[in-house]
């Protein structure tokens, strides 16, 4: 049970990191980015490529992959998503980002084939012991990375001028524009940030799971579930829901049976949404925080 609890917290934080981008993008742009899963996998493949061809360490490689994914996000937003307007914007965004996802999946299949790969280094399979419990380095480092990046995002949102612009856009885009905030620019940068964090999430995911392009389908369903539970648009919600989801699944698996672990999470999701349709930290809370 202690194992399950530790596993849940460590793994859940990485899911939270991946979901953060998704919730940020929805919060600011009201875009449901179903391509987030494939962006995570793209991030994993970038780390894989750098390691395979240039021998660059997975964590050091983030100095390259995070900015690269930021640029990818900016380009995608400018080319395909900036044009979405009007009341159908959110619904249309699902179709557009799904199309983007399919295109990236196809490109990855051609570039890397459908064979599964995994990011392997000297430390990915190693662990250290704390009170009789083995803690894998990669999960622990992934947890620390998630904390650092989420803290950075939090600082940016709540302690910087740009963060204030984002929060204003989150609250009311028209009002933000009226006070001189360039909402278009904020949206573009937010999308870039949302995609940039997938580089980190993808690297840790790729170091703990074998993957190919189609792995993104499994990921996106989990990520969407996390942000629905946490409250769409809420960073804190993504963190709490990510950790809660994986921990709950692991505990149910350990105490009862893994067969019921997924169902247990969805039961909790249904119960929470019955009383709080906006999720645990719904938009109101996020805006007020």
């Amino acid at each position: 049970m202690v194992h399950a609890l530790i596993d849940g917290v460590l793994t859940g934080s990485v899911y939270a990191l991946m979901a953060t981008g998704l919730t940020l993008i929805f919060g600011v742009m009201e875009i449901i980015n179903v391509a987030q899963g494939i962006f995570v996998i793209l991030g994993a493949y970038l780390s894989y490529y750098l390691q395979l061809h240039f021998g660059i360490d997975l964590f050091a490689g983030l100095l390259i992959t995070i900015p690269t994914m930021f640029v990818v996000g900016i380009v995608v937003q400018r080319l395909f998503l900036a044009r979405l307007k009007g009341p159908e914007k959110t619904a249309m965004s699902i179709l557009v980002t799904y199309a983007i996802s399919l295109v990236i999946e196809g490109i990855l299949n051609i570039a890397f084939t459908v064979n599964n790969v995994q990011l392997n280094t000297s430390y990915t399979n190693k662990s250290f012991q704390v009170f009789g419990v083995y803690i894998p380095y990669i999960y622990f480092m992934g947890f620390l990375l998630a904390i650092v990046l989420l803290s950075g995002l939090y600082y940016m949102l709540y302690r910087t001028r740009f963060g204030a612009s984002i929060r204003a856009s989150l609250a009311d885009q028209s009002a933000a524009a009226l006070v001189g905030i360039d909402v278009k620019k904020v949206s573009t940068i937010c999308f870039g940030i949302g995609i940039a964090v997938t580089a980190a999430g993808g690297m840790v995911f790729g170091a703990t799971n074998a993957f190919n392009a189609s792995t993104s389908y499994d990921l996106i369903s989990r990520l969407l579930t996390i942000i629905v539970l946490g409250g769409m648009g809420s960073l804190a919600g993504a963190l709490v829901a990510g950790i809660a989801m994986v921990t709950l699944e692991d505990l149910v698996g350990a105490i009862w049976s893994p067969v019921w672990s997924t169902m247990a999470f969805f039961v909790v999701l249904v119960v929470v949404l019955s009383f709080r349709p906006q999720g645990l930290f719904g938009q109101q809370s996020a805006r007020a925080a």
């Binding site: 596993d7 703990t208 692991d250 067969v259 672990s261």
Partner: peptide, 17 residues
């Protein structure tokens, strides 16, 4: 004897058991 769901994507906890 442990059975896990085919839709599982995170096997670490089961493997730990």
């Amino acid at each position: 004897y442990t059975v896990f769901p085919s839709e599982a994507t995170d096997w670490r906890s089961i493997a730990d058991q």
